[in-house]
Amino acid sequence: MARKPNPQAMRERAAKTAAVMATPGGAVAAPKKTGFIEGLRNLPKFAMEVRAEARKITWTSRKETWITSVMVAIMVVMAAFFFFVVNWLLNTGITWILKIATAG
């Protein structure tokens, strides 16, 4: 079921878009280049942000991994059987056509 649109959030997004479009060329100004020393000063902040993002990672459980692996194996077997049958039918049909063509 779709969420109802939030008019306040829509207005805020429209205001942000208008602010970006009002800049020359419709683009945000490029960030100022920083030197090596500035980069080192930002390193702790960067490390904290990376750590915060890493905490958001969710791993599948052992059971989910096992079920998914079994499903993949079943699909591989089914696809192999399908292509075996199709190959056999095409081979038989072409062989039959060639026998008719060379005998006649």
Results as ranks from 00 to 15, higher is better:
F36R: 07
I67C: 15
A79V: 14
M78G: 13
I97A: 06
A9Q: 11
G25A: 00
R62M: 04
P24W: 01
L89K: 14
I97F: 10
K33M: 09
P7N: 00
A54C: 09
G35V: 02
T92S: 06
A18D: 11
V76A: 07
M71N: 09
R3I: 12
N91F: 08
G35T: 03
R62C: 04
A9E: 07
E12R: 06
A18I: 11
T34C: 06
M48G: 10
K4A: 14
W96Y: 05
F83D: 01
R11G: 07
F84C: 05
V85N: 00
A29I: 03
R41T: 13
V72D: 11
V50Y: 13
A54R: 04
G93A: 07
K45T: 09
W96D: 09
E49A: 05
E12G: 02
V86P: 01
E38N: 12
M75K: 05
V85M: 02
K45F: 09
M10C: 07
E12D: 06
F84L: 06
P7Q: 00
E12P: 02
F84N: 00
V77Q: 02
A30L: 14
F46A: 11
A54H: 08
I74A: 09
L98T: 10
P44F: 01
E53C: 14
G39Q: 02
V28L: 04
F82N: 04
F82R: 06
A27G: 07
A52Y: 06
M48W: 12
V50N: 05
L89D: 15
K16N: 10
N6R: 01
S69K: 05
V70A: 12
L98F: 03
G93I: 02
K32M: 12
M71K: 06
T17A: 03
A19T: 02
E12F: 14
T17F: 12
A80E: 08
A47M: 09
T58S: 05
F36P: 01
E12V: 14
